[in-house]
Design a binder for these strands. Structure first.
Length: 308
RNA sequence: CGCGGGGUAGAGCAGUUCGGUAGCUCAUCGGGCUCAUAACCCGAAGGUCGUGAGGUUCAAAUCCCACCCCCGCAA
């Protein structure tokens, strides 16, 4: 089938690659417009765009696809379109062009919306997965065709999980295209009563609440890493936490109080329930590093309190 | 021209205000001590201080200029 692929970030690349290496033909890629990094004015090219250029696939970028894209898409004469973390919502005029399916990184109907993996980790889910379903006006509400899950070890962050899920997505999308082409697709309605929708995350959501249990905070950090990032505040400013684990310890009266701070033992903080060993941290101007290395050159006194 | 921090030994940092032989902690190597240790003691090695046959100077990690790279905020 002639496929138009709509996607933008790294997660979508493996999926695109799988289609490109299958019997199906990717006749064009649609991706978000290039963004300019405010810090150094350099243009950031999305991962999907880079792939497409490298493999000689036509690329189109629209500010608003539903307004600017319809004619172009029709002229490409696609049999089907595949959306995968594209970043824009399709309006009816686009949906009318041809059948469209979506690759979504959750086990629908749970975790509809824009950051399903982050939320699944934050909530401590033991199992995550990928669903292939129809793209329609509602966000991630379409009838489902294929679904596959995977079990987590319990310490992966969202980047690592996304990587695993993109491989599953890559497998499923080719299978889905084959099924649809053969005309044997069986679509399953989503159970609305079990549906959950996750809200879009922003940097401000990354603030750690040390009154929560150590396990919850650990999961929170897993979900928020690497984006939008989890952080707390110290006397010296913001401290990002990229990895942490629950730990055995004692002492401390206040949630967020540092009970261990030593280049050999690490950095341990009291939580609402239990203790959290901060493994990888990063201060405002520095690189992410092991907390033990951090403590070789920075002082954090036992008894100081994180949080603000 | 959105705001700001940084590049010094393998790692993490100090030293730059006010130029004058480069320092701390850890790691490494050698030796010692201990029933034992995330333990301790003694010693050693390791750096063209991001780049520029740049500028100023008797003298530059430090002051001036240009460029490269990394990072936080804001978008």
């Amino acid at each position: 089938m002639r496929v138009i692929f709509l996607g933008t970030p790294e997660f979508a690349v493996r999926v695109l690659d799988a289609i490109n290496n299958s019997e199906h033909k990717v006749c064009a890629v649609i991706t978000q417009p290039d963004r300019i990094n405010g810090r150094n004015k350099k243009t950031i090219t999305g991962a999907v765009k880079s792939y497409a250029i490298e493999h000689g696939i036509k690329v189109f970028q629209f500010e608003k696809i539903s307004i600017e894209g319809e004619e172009t898409l029709r002229s490409l004469n696609p049999d089907i379109m595949v959306t995968c973390a594209y970043g824009q919502i399709l309006k009816q005029n686009i949906l009318d062009i041809c059948p469209i399916i979506n690759v979504h990184a959750s086990l629908l109907p749970k975790y509809r919306g824009s950051s399903p993996v982050q939320w699944a980790l934050i909530n401590g889910e033991k199992e995550v997965g990928v669903t292939i379903m129809k793209t329609e006006l509602g966000i991630d509400t379409g009838d489902m065709l294929l679904k596959e899950s995977t079990v987590l070890k319990g310490d992966e962050n969202s980047e690592e999980v996304l990587s695993v899920l993109s491989e599953i997505g890559a497998r499923l999308i080719v299978k889905a295209l084959d099924i649809i082409e053969s005309g044997t697709a069986k679509w399953e309605k989503q159970d609305e009563s079990k549906a959950t929708h996750c809200k879009m995350l922003s940097k401000a959501d990354g603030k750690i609440d040390f009154s929560e249990s150590a396990l919850r905070i650990k999961n929170f950090i897993r979900g928020m890493t690497p984006w939008p990032g989890a952080f707390t505040k110290t006397e010296k400013g913001i401290l990002k936490i990229l990895k942490a684990d629950t730990a055995e310890s004692s002492g401390g009266d206040i949630n967020g109080e540092v009970v261990v701070s030593d280049p050999k033992k690490g950095l341990i903080v009291k939580c609402g329930e239990g203790y959290l060993d901060l493994k990888i941290i990063q201060n405002e101007n520095g690189k992410a590093m092991d907390s033990k290395a951090y403590l070789l050159g920075h002082k954090i006194s036992v008894g100081s309190v994180f949080g603000d």
